[in-house]
Design a protein around this nucleic acid. Structure first.
Length: 285
RNA sequence: GGCCCGAUAGCUCAGUCGGUAGAGCAGUGGAUUGAAAAUUCACGUGUCGGCGGUUCAAAUCCGUCUCGGGCCA
């Protein structure tokens, strides 16, 4: 008896991952597992372009809308949620079809987490109050090698490197090296595809989806989340729609701002997936 | 019809005393192992609306034409 391997469906936003996953799930007797950071949240279905109720009725969908919007996810937490579900699907003899565009989350799932300490909200809040120069200087002092490998203009990366050193009492560079060495052999055992579309095609699909999103109740969704949201503010479209609601911008401007932000996101996703050599390019007809 | 203002990168615009031009946005490429739909780095040659003139030298000054916008008839 052969062991079922999960199948990954990746690609930029609006490239058609969800419908391809649905098609494949029917053919392979599979179940779909979300790998999108924002489709994890409840109440953000429209803005995050999560699969519709009709789609979810056709085959089992997992990890959609499972987190309250007040909570915050991260890559490690995602893996903690996804792993048992995937194991269970396999145990039942079905094929897990992991679908989503969050490169980091997928990377954690496929290649495992480095032995690094978990993020610490208090420490981060403290570091956020300090000037970047100071954080850089401290990192250079504690772990010069890590500092030399880090993009020092990127506050997030500097903070994280420093956080690792401070919380673990070890060198971030050492801990990261330990993980790097094993990644290549893992890749050879993975199966999946990345949807590739031409830019004009993708841009047209993005524009169409934005329009539909705004027509389909995105305003109500954002209005409902505004009071309680914190992390949902980072979702593309959230701020733009909030500005539309309060009359700061008009509908056309809102649409164009969302389109531009989405296009830029799609480009970043393509850059990410280009590095994942194990993914087989899939060109929709 | 007369007068005034504008025309510079895909878009919005800046450009000093004449020395052949640069910002933002968009776009493109990259980085990215616990915030990731986040964060961050790099990339700027374009008939300076057309034609003519002045000048060693014109986006810049002069004339004229075209196209916008406005005011007066």
């Amino acid at each position: 008896m052969s062991v079922v391997t999960p199948y990954y469906i990746c690609g930029p936003t609006a490239s058609g991952k969800s419908s391809l996953a649905l098609e494949l799930a029917k053919k392979l007797d599979g179940e779909i597992v979300n790998a999108d950071a924002f489709q994890l949240y409840q109440g953000l279905e429209i803005v995050s372009a999560a699969p519709s109720v009709e789609e979810r009725e056709q085959v089992p969908h997992h990890l959609y809308g499972v987190l309250p919007p007040t909570e915050s996810a991260d890559a490690q937490r995602y893996v903690t949620l996804a792993k048992p579900i995937i194991t269970d699907i396999i145990a039942r003899g079905k094929t897990p079809i992991i679908t989503g565009g969050s490169g980091l989350y997928l990377k954690f799932l496929t290649h495992g987490a480095a032995p690094l300490p978990t993020a610490d909200a208090g420490l981060r809040a403290e570091m956020d109050t300090r000037p970047l120069d100071e954080l850089v200087a401290q990192l250079q002092l504690l772990d010069p090698l890590e500092a030399s490998r880090t993009a020092l203009q990127n506050r997030r990366f500097v903070s994280r490197a420093l956080e690792i050193c401070l919380l673990s009492g070890q060198l971030a560079s050492d801990l990261r090296d330990r993980w790097e060495t094993k990644t290549t052999e893992i890749s050879s055992q993975l199966q999946g595809l990345v949807i590739q579309r031409s830019r004009p095609d993708l841009h047209a699909r993005i524009a169409m989806r934005t329009r539909q999103m705004l027509d389909d109740g995105a305003l109500e969704e954002v209005a409902a989340l505004t009071a309680i949201s914190r992390n949902c503010e980072k979702a593309i479209g959230f701020r733009e729609i909030r500005d539309l609601i309060i009359g700061e911008i008009d509908r056309a401007t809102c649409e164009e701002l969302i389109n531009a932000a989405t296009r830029q996101y799609a480009k970043r996703q393509e850059t990410w997936f280009r590095r994942e050599k194990w993914l087989i390019p899939h060109l929709p007809t």
